[in-house]
Computed example of a mutant assay.
Amino acid sequence: MTEMLAALLGAIVGGALSAWVGSRQTAKVLKHETDLAAGERREAQRADQERRRTLAADQLIAALADFVTVNRDDGDRSAAFVRIAATADVHRERNGRASALLQAASTHAHALPEELRERWDALTWMVRFNQSKQEERTEDLRRRDASDLLNYIEYVRRSLCAVSEGDPVPPHFPAPDVRREERRVWGYKPEGKDEPDLSEWQLSARLVGKVTFTTGEVRWYGPNGLVVDLPQEPAETETPAD
């Protein structure tokens, strides 16, 4: 009788132990599968976020290229960015380009990383400031404002390109202070100031650069807007003399 009870107790204990081990293994398998599924969801969300950020950066780079495109022959580009003496046509063109840029911002800027949204918000504020009448502001300051804006656009463009290409984002620099009195352009020979050094770009042709869209399309933008790669014409062959 004792042996039967011992055997029965052993069977019960063995069965309980086996069930406990089985449940533990099942729980581990389920946890592994749950963690794996959660990891896959996080990776999918991260990839989707990166895709949206890249798309937003590409679209805003193109919008900046359109904004800085000024098709005028007199060479006074500053009139197209700040309210200095200019024709009514220049005013209308400037307002139109600013409106298009702000519309692109409202459509795409929300997808940018937070640090870039701050830079973009500062840029759109500068655009609005340069669009305001500024009746009390001297023409020299307004011209400096135009160069400040173009240099800050280049700084933001480089930040957007870093996001688009997966490179490290340039360090943060405060936006130009429109209340400062110095005539030096923001970003030009900063000499220890908390600004990026855009001196070479300031003196260059100010090319906007290449924009690669997620569709695979590649566009080049220059100082006068979209650059179209034209096919090379075949070299003319000389006609042999008679």
Rank of each mutant, 00 (worst) to 15 (best):
A16V: 02
A16F: 01
A16L: 05
A16K: 02
L17D: 01
S18C: 05
S18W: 12
S18I: 03
A19E: 03
A19D: 04
A19F: 00
A19W: 00
A19C: 04
W20C: 00
V21I: 12
V21E: 09
G22D: 03
G22M: 00
G22L: 00
G22Q: 00
S23P: 00
S23I: 13
R24N: 13
Q25W: 14
Q25M: 09
Q25H: 14
T26K: 12
T26D: 13
A27F: 03
A27L: 04
A27S: 08
A27Q: 10
V29F: 08
V29W: 10
L30P: 01
L30N: 11
L30S: 07
L30Y: 02
K31F: 10
K31Q: 12
K31S: 08
K31L: 12
K31I: 02
H32R: 15
H32I: 09
H32V: 10
E33Q: 12
E33L: 07
T34V: 08
T34D: 14
T34P: 01
D35N: 13
D35I: 11
D35H: 11
D35A: 14
D35T: 12
L36S: 10
L36C: 09
A37V: 03
A37E: 14
A37S: 08
A37F: 03
A37W: 06
A38G: 01
A38C: 02
G39T: 09
G39C: 05
G39D: 05
G39V: 02
E40R: 06
E40C: 06
E40V: 11
R41M: 07
R42K: 14
R42D: 10
E43A: 15
E43D: 10
E43Y: 03
E43F: 07
E43N: 05
E43S: 11
A44R: 11
A44S: 10
Q45S: 13
R46Y: 12
A47Q: 10
A47K: 04
A47H: 01
D48L: 15
D48V: 06
D48S: 14
D48H: 08
